[in-house]
Design a protein around this nucleic acid. Structure first.
Lengths: 137, 137
DNA sequence: TTATGTGCAAAACATTTGCAGGAGT
DNA sequence: ACTCCTGCAAATGTTTTGCACATAA
């Protein structure tokens, strides 16, 4: 997708951005669609996909290419890391300091022009581990 | 998918594993299918998916949930990190020492039971950056 | 006014699954 | 023999796209 300097501020885009900003849950495109549809019942899923993609390309939001089958979106563009529960699939932020220096290390140890990095932890969230205990009993 | 202790050694499984072991390119399921089909022309894509999934669950291979639309598979199960070219989409290993300690840090700073982590760098590979130069000229 | 954006529906991909027949143990 | 596994094809799930109409600038 292209960076279009003349990107119009449409109602759909405003509301997508507002709704994404309200949550910390890193929703999938379909979840954003459901949230937005409460306010704009006639919006199309294609519009949601197109605009999330466009905003991600323009650095307004973050597209997370994490584990699981669907892409997720995040209104927080400042660098940070994520943790995914292997049991329920939910993705959360994790408050670990960002390692700025490893990009330099990576540049030295590879033939690539490094653009960035992302860390994804995997684990079991507290909600799922208490469920697990209940099942065992 | 389940861990079945009585997992049979079929021709299909042997060949999938052999072919995956031959390459360092982290192929997608479809690419594995193409490789395997040269030796087993009647194998089904479903069989490839089923077996890659099964082997990943048993720790025989690694399933990479990296950027891009498709999952990728890796015969090297020892912990290591990856780098993806944002231009051509290829995924390579990157020889950066694995940080074992950050799992502990993550456990302290979160409510999760940490199982592991993965780092994915993004950048532009040397092949793509030389192409880029040619296009500019 | 006019280029850009939207809704809708179809298409394109990626992956999973049901089932009848085949093969490993 | 008795499971487990495979090939095939259909189903499912996710994302992209074509197009006629709508709308922001």
């Amino acid at each position: 997708m292209q960076l279009t300097p003349q990107m119009r501020l449409t109602t759909q885009r405003q509301i997508i951005l507002e709704e994404l900003g309200k949550v910390t849950s890193h929703p999938t495109a379909n979840e954003v669609y459901d949230m937005v549809r409460k306010r704009l019942p006639r919006i199309g899923l294609g519009t949601v996909y197109r605009n999330l993609e466009l905003m991600a390309d323009n650095g307004i939001i973050l597209k997370l290419e994490v584990g699981g089958t669907q892409k997720r979106f995040d209104a927080t563009v400042a660098p940070h890391y994520h943790i995914r529960c292997v049991s329920c699939g939910k993705v959360n932020d994790i408050e670990i300091p960002v390692m700025e220096d490893i990009n330099k290390t990576a540049a030295e140890l590879s033939q690539y022009q490094i653009l960035g990095h992302h860390i994804e932890f995997s684990g079991i969230c507290s909600a799922c581990s208490s469920e697990e205990k209940q099942l065992v009993n």
